[in-house]
Design a protein around this nucleic acid. Structure first.
Lengths: 154, 154
DNA sequence: CCAACATGCGTGACATGTCAACCATTCCCG
DNA sequence: CGGGAATGGTTGACATGTCACGCATGTTGG
């Protein structure tokens, strides 16, 4: 960290970075508002439910779920406790491994996400994809994948 | 919401969307870790300090600051209270408008951000921009701006 | 002038996320 | 075997964000 070995961002990078940051905070907020308003679910609730519906029997081990979501286990544990209280999911013991636990989708949970999904997708489309050309979508995917790669290395 | 008027996302859109979501949660986390570790600042502290250093005299009205950050005023108020306790910023009354208040950068705050900035920029570059071609940066800026436009309309 | 209303900000109760312990089980190796 | 280390999960204390409200000042219309 001697004299000046850290080049600042150039103008275009600055602009992209600021826009990126702004979008990164406002887009999730907007999605959350819509879900909350129309379906009484938070974006986080929705993410959990998506993971569960992605599996055959709606049962996932806690750690696997945390990994899939990119959450800390303790955060997930707290969140599952809250969702359990609302009847959206349930905990279940794991026969194979006495320590383990499953999170399972309840019928209420399934009903909730099925009711919420169409509106959510509609919102995502209208806020993001309807504004983008196919080439831009491809570009977005390329960019995010590259950055994700960097993040995994670090 | 009759039969099936909500087209799901196509494969490429799905992929882009998932990558986007993953990056949206992991990148801020990584930046936060670096700042916290090297400079004892949270990413939010940093954002506040950036806004203050962007002005001539390091003084900004609370509402203007909240708007610039895209935060709720009450969130900012709490955060300023905490930063004030650490000596990074201070509150100041507003002569023009007896209700108003300024947030001002203290010398300690200025020192903190000046110390933190190089490492932060280095991290942003290495995680994001070093991986991208100029064309991709341009594309990123175009995409994020379009989406931001949508968000403002809504 | 002054009574409503609007605006700028702070506060307190509560929801959520993080961090560091803490069991209970399972693994591993002497 | 048996005992320490590793693993899976939870919990509690605390940091942060949200929401609804309160208070003081400012603004406006009769």
């Amino acid at each position: 960290m001697s004299a000046d070995e850290t080049p600042w961002l150039d103008d275009r990078q600055q602009q992209a970075w600021r826009a990126w940051l702004a979008m990164g905070s406002r887009l999730p907020a907007a999605l959350n508002r819509q879900l909350q308003r129309d379906s009484d679910l938070s974006l986080q609730d929705f993410d959990v439910l998506v993971q569960l519906t992605d599996t055959e029997d709606g049962r996932v081990r806690v750690s696997a779920l945390a990994a899939a979501l990119g959450w800390e286990r303790s955060r997930l544990s707290h969140h599952v406790t809250r969702m359990e209280r609302r009847g959206l999911v349930a905990r279940e013991e794991c026969g194979d491994d006495g320590r383990g636990a499953f999170v399972v989708l309840t019928p209420e949970g399934r009903a909730a996400i099925e009711a919420a999904a169409p509106g959510h997708v509609r919102t995502v489309r209208s806020l993001v994809f309807d504004a983008l050309t196919p080439a831009e979508v491809a570009s977005l995917e390329a960019i995010t994948s590259k950055v994700l790669g960097r993040l995994e290395d670090a």
